[in-house]
Design a protein around this nucleic acid. Structure first.
Length: 267
DNA sequence: CCATGTACCTGAAGGC
DNA sequence: TGCCTTCAGGTACATG
C-alpha cells in the first residue's frame, strides 16, 4: 500500500501530534510486528522528531530510534484523533499522558524496529525520491552503472527510495519509457525526463495526500485523493489519455505493470 | 551481478 | 450459497 506520498502524508500529520510525547511502554499485540535490536530502555524516552526516508518512518527518541515500515496494509494513528475504530491493531505505543499510537495492519507484514541508530536500517536504501540533493547527472550515472530492467531499478529502493508499484508505473508513463527497457539503455535525455517525471509524480501524490486503492488511510483515517489522477495504474483495457490506445498490463519485476504500448515503445 | 520464485498474511473478487 | 483460485500500495531470502 503505502509508497512515499502516503508515508509522507502520515508523517506530516503525526509530527505535531507526537513531538515531545514520553513513551511508557510498547505492547506488541502481534509479536512479530516488533523487533528490538537495541538494549536501551524505551520507557521514559521522549519523541524528539518524526522523520521519513523512502517508505520508512523514523521516530527519533532521546537515546535510540524507532523505525517503522507499513509494508502493504500498515496504518498509524493516535487513538484520540480517529473517528472510526481500527480492527487489526498489531502494536500499541502507550504514552505517559494516556494517549496511544496505534499500529493497525491487516496483513501483518508491517514492522516496528527499535534500533540504537536509525542509520543501521536506513543506510541500506538509496536517497529519498524527493531529496533535494539529487541531480540529473547522479541519476543518469546510476542508470548507466546497472544493467537491470528499469521497473526493477525504480522498485528496488537501493538506488532511489520511495517508489512502489503505483508511482513507478505512473512515472514511467509520464517519461514515455517502456517498463522493460534496460536501465543502462536510457539516453541522458531520457534519464533526465524520467527523473523529472518521478519528482512530478511524487510531488503530486503528496499534494493529493496519497492514493487510496482499498486499505490506505492517513493518520486521521481519511483516504487520499491521488487515485483520481492515475493515468495507467488500474486502467488496463481503457484508452490511453494521450493517444487512445488501450492500456496494457504485463508482468515486470514480478509485479503487475501497466503502460501504453504506443506512448512507451520498447523500440 | 541479475532474474525469478517463495514466504510472510488477510480479505476481496471472480469463476464455476 | 459455497468452494477454489487469483490478486493486492512490500520486502527478504533462496535458487539458478
Amino acid at each position: 500500500m503505502p509508497e512515499l506520498p502516503e508515508v509522507e502524508t502520515v508523517v506530516r500529520e503525526l509530527r505535531p501530534l507526537l513531538q515531545g510525547k514520553m513513551i511508557r511502554t510498547i505492547e506488541a499485540v502481534w509479536p512479530k510486528t516488533f523487533e528490538n535490536r537495541c538494549t536501551r530502555e524505551l520507557a521514559g524516552q521522549r519523541i524528539r522528531e518524526v522523520a521519513r526516508k523512502g517508505k520508512y518512518i523514523v521516530l527519533r527518541l532521546e537515546q535510540s530510534d524507532l523505525v517503522i515500515h507499513l509494508r502493504m496494509t500498515g496504518q498509524l494513528a493516535l487513538n484520540t484523533s480517529l473517528t472510526r475504530p481500527l480492527n487489526h491493531i498489531r502494536l500499541i505505543i502507550h504514552f505517559d499522558d494516556g494517549e496511544q499510537l496505534l499500529f493497525n495492519d491487516t496483513r501483518k507484514f508491517g514492522r516496528v524496529y527499535h534500533v540504537c541508530q536509525a542509520r543501521e536500517i536506513l543506510q541500506r536504501i538509496g536517497k529519498d525520491g524527493l531529496d533535494p540533493q539529487w541531480s540529473d547527472e547522479e541519476f543518469y550515472q546510476m542508470l548507466q552503472n546497472h544493467s537491470v530492467g528499469i521497473k526493477s531499478f525504480l522498485m528496488s529502493q537501493k538506488y532511489i527510495s520511495g517508489l512502489g508499484n503505483i508511482y513507478t508505473d505512473e512515472s514511467l508513463f509520464r517519461a514515455a519509457v517502456h517498463p522493460l527497457r534496460l536501465s543502462s539503455s536510457l539516453s541522458r535525455k531520457e534519464a533526465q525526463r524520467l527523473f523529472e517525471s518521478i519528482r512530478f509524480i511524487l510531488t503530486q501524490g503528496v499534494k493529493n495526500m496519497g492514493s487510496t486503492i482499498s486499505d490506505y488511510r492517513d493518520a486521521y483515517g481519511n483516504p487520499g485523493k491521488n487515485q483520481y489522477y492515475f493515468k495507467v495504474y488500474g486502467r488496463e483495457g481503457q484508452p490511453c489519455l494521450i493517444c487512445g490506445t488501450p492500456i496494457e498490463k504485463i508482468k515486470a519485476a514480478g509485479r503487475s505493470t501497466r503502460f501504453c504500448p504506443k506512448c512507451q515503445p520498447l523500440r
